[in-house]
């Protein structure tokens, strides 16, 4: 995770928009794919609605993670607002930590403990992104390029790591092919087109097979 935020900082440096958008997106989006989409489209000066739609689509994948984490920490009859605060910090890393580290913790202690982990992680990642940003400035060009490459590598490999169904692999392939094709025709909407068309194709093809078998 630290490596991917160093990569993110280097990527923000490469976009030549200053460090601030990188830090703000870390604080408020706190999910790397959405952050990369946001800073990329900001650098391109994309239309507001296109940015909002693309970011929200990357964030859909947080929904099942939040459902899983919240159902392992919530208490019957306790106030709900701490859960809505905790939700802001939930992304892949917190989800993994919750899966591994919560079993031996008493249920009432789980929400404050995870909140502490979330805030600590966020503070560390602000430092990591800044580190990447300044490293990218002072490293030889090839090393800086490799630093930027950390982020897409992490995303791509993570897709394979979390793939469970044939549909997931098909969606990876379809998105990777349709996205760049769409980039030629609708540069603002390539991610939306790649996601919606590629994902729907993958879903429909495998659903027919699921039903056929």
């Amino acid at each position: 995770m630290a490596a991917s935020f160093i990569g993110f900082g280097a990527l923000v440096r490469g976009l030549e928009i200053g460090l601030l958008p990188g830090l703000l997106s870390t604080l408020f989006v706190w999910a790397l794919p959405g952050q990369v989409v946001l800073v990329n489209m900001y650098a391109e000066g994309a239309a507001f609605l296109a940015v909002a739609a693309a970011v929200t689509l990357t964030a859909v994948r947080l929904l099942p993670m939040v459902i899983l984490v919240i159902s392992t920490v919530r208490l019957e009859g306790a106030p709900r607002w701490p859960l809505y605060l905790l939700a802001h910090f939930i992304a892949v890393t917190i989800w993994r930590i919750a899966e591994d580290g919560l079993e031996e913790l008493d249920r009432p202690k789980r929400v404050p403990w995870l909140l502490g982990v979330g805030i600590t992680l966020m503070a560390s990642m602000l430092v990591m992104a800044s580190t990447g940003y300044y490293l990218a400035q002072s490293l030889p060009p090839l090393l800086a390029a490799c630093l930027i490459f950390l982020t897409p590598s992490f995303f791509f490999i993570s897709l394979f790591a979390s793939a469970r169904f044939a549909m997931d692999y098909l969606a990876i392939g379809a998105g990777a092919v349709i996205g760049p094709a769409a980039y030629h025709f609708y540069p603002d909407f390539d991610l939306l087109v790649g996601g919606l068309v590629g994902g729907t194709l993958a879903y429909l093809v495998t659903r027919r097979r699921r039903r056929g078998s």
């Binding site: 859909v60 997931d168 969606a171 379809a174 087109v193 996601g195 590629g198």
Partner: peptide, 14 residues
């Protein structure tokens, strides 16, 4: 899940 996966793949491809 399929749309979100394809979208991140499209982001990597870009």
């Amino acid at each position: 899940r399929a749309v979100a996966t394809a979208l991140v793949a499209a982001l990597v491809a870009r």
